[in-house]
Design a protein around this nucleic acid. Structure first.
Lengths: 341, 341
DNA sequence: TTTAGCACTCGATAAGCATGAGTGCTAACA
DNA sequence: TGTTAGCACTCATGCTTATCGAGTGCTAAA
């Protein structure tokens, strides 16, 4: 275990490095107000800390830099509660006050704010409300051969798809089908839809089943499969970091972020609460120089989505964690109050 | 006017520079198979071309580089028809064969292919079908106070929004309203909706107007305003270009591309046909080191959207233009055949 | 009109050197 | 015994200088 003084010094080093982005030397630390030891003493301690794996030295005559293990200890034990500024709190409050009803917009706006507040890249996922229940099905014919199928869930989510109509089908028949579907399937959870669809409907409409095949297919496919909505904001913020002034270093990261389907792997829906993955702890090679902090937000106590921040390992952990906690809490409250009606 | 030989040399220089990214010298040109002159002769001509503003010299002892004017001449007069490879044509064909019905998916996929084929950044806009006509309105109540309003246009586009219901409104009343709206407004072009809405409906339903205010507002606002759909793919391709190996040089470009609402300014819905904007010719400062090639695609002869490529001024103009032309033509054919039913 | 020849320019690369931030170790001190 | 002053040592950084060579412009000959 680290002595109090070692912790104090480690804390000072991480703190300094986070703000300066330069390897920190013993003298810099000894000059700090909160440290009352000479540079020589600090040097000895730093040497020990390096031996223990908490620090690294880019080269002999340079200062020292926290290792992944060092950051990990800092995050787990040393981090100090960060107070948000008035203006920052204001922005968050404003977000929650905003009367945006569609979840997509909330998510998008959240990512925006998050990136603005932290100056890092924000990734926001969800909300995935797993217990979508079917509220309404509608089929609107456009012409002889095409129609739009629309499905509304009880949470207000709307999905739609252009479909081809079976040949020779009439408006009356479509209406009957729609009525039947609505009658039988309202309030059925989406995940049961596949099963119920064929069970209830195709029994009743045996003679038409073939004709309706495509329509049923649509309902079956595009509704039971959850579409993950990921929003990314401030991807280019990483370019402001001095350790990423080299194009080769950022290229992989930006390319990764550009593939939206990869983003899920990046923020990796794992733990429900606050998760910090530091540098090497990340699975993906492209972001082994980065840290990712995520937390989940919930609806009625049940986690439904995630908010996350991607930044350099030399990240303002304290601030980011505070912001994320505030945000997740606010979002949860907002969602819950909105849908509990 | 430039002599034949001058044109030949300018062409060779642009051609070389596009592929090498290095200032080209007289000897390099004289060694080319298609040039039968000594380096000295080339030097004289190059000197003249520089005086005329077609070439620039980074410094005295370097080769020369095309100026904006030089590229312009190249694009307008010298460009040679570019033949696409079998594999490239295949990818395009595959795109058009794809039976994707929703326009958003087509657009997204188009951007993807475009970026893959050219190795530059692709921006795709639309399709904006300006004569959307209303096909169907639906209001699905979710609970006592909320409902989803859904609008379908005759082209199959679906818009939806969560709205608050006026207090004490019943299911029956909503249905009456919806029926009224559908009865009166079907086939009305969206741009007329605002006017017709208040004119026809509010007359008829005077006593309810206040209650329905929000619903009418939704229809009024979110439907008459065209939402531009812009898709961006391959934004990070610019990082492969040797002239953009400096983070400071790409930062502004990537930040611009990140703001989706700015993209319209980038590809700038101007001319209908093929447009090439080279370096300095661009309005936005961030992309004065880039060239943008755009063209429009159409539905039934009427331009409805744009496809564009953003790359360095040192761009493979010939290839990009060919690809864009193919693509626009194919898209137009595809759209037209799909909607003419 | 073309081209061979040659002096000249100037960025890029490398080598040499001074600087200074930072270290590790030792010995003296409280 | 823990702390610190002192000092030799290391090594990245920045500066200067020298060399190299790709490329030019000009002149004179073919």
């Amino acid at each position: 275990m680290l002595s109090d003084r070692q912790q104090m010094i480690l804390n000072a080093i991480v703190d300094n490095y986070i703000h300066s982005a330069e390897p920190v030397g013993s003298r810099t630390i000894s000059k700090r107000d909160d440290i009352g030891f000479s540079s020589a003493t600090i040097r000895n301690e730093m040497s020990d800390l390096e031996e223990l794996g908490y620090l690294e030295q880019p080269h002999t005559s340079a200062g020292r830099v926290p290792s992944t293990k060092g950051y990990r200890f800092y995050v787990d034990n040393l981090i100090q509660p960060h107070l948000l500024e008035e203006a920052e709190l204001g922005k968050l409050k404003q977000l929650f006050a905003e009367r945006i009803l569609h979840s997509e917009q909330v998510v998008e706006y959240t990512a925006q704010i998050l990136s603005q507040l932290t100056n890092y890249t924000a990734i926001v996922l969800g909300p995935e409300i797993f217990e979508h229940r079917l509220k309404h099905i509608q089929i609107v014919p456009l012409n002889e051969t095409q129609a739009v199928a629309i499905v509304v869930t009880h949470t207000g989510r709307v999905e739609n798809k252009l479909i081809d109509l079976p040949e020779g089908i009439g408006a009356g028949e479509i209406e009957r089908l729609v009525n039947l579907l609505n009658g039988k399937l309202t309030d059925v959870p989406l995940w049961q839809l596949r099963q119920r669809l064929y069970q209830e409907i195709s029994g009743e409409m045996q003679r038409h089943t073939e004709q309706y095949e495509e329509i049923l297919q649509f309902l079956n496919n595009s509704l039971t499969q959850e579409e993950e909505r990921v929003y990314l904001r401030g991807a280019t913020k990483i370019l402001n970091q001095p350790e990423f002034r080299d194009v080769d270093k950022v290229k992989d990261i930006l390319e990764l972020l550009e593939q939206h389907d990869q983003l899920l792997n990046v923020i990796g829906m794992q733990g429900d609460g606050l998760t910090v993955r530091i540098g090497q702890e990340n699975q993906l090679d492209a972001i082994k120089q980065c840290s990712i902090i995520t937390t989940s937000y919930s609806l009625g106590g049940k986690p439904v989505g995630m908010v996350g921040i991607l930044g350099p390992t030399r990240m303002e952990y304290g601030k980011v964690i505070t912001v994320l906690n505030h945000l997740a809490e606010g979002l949860s409250r907002m969602l819950t109050s909105q849908f509990e009606k």
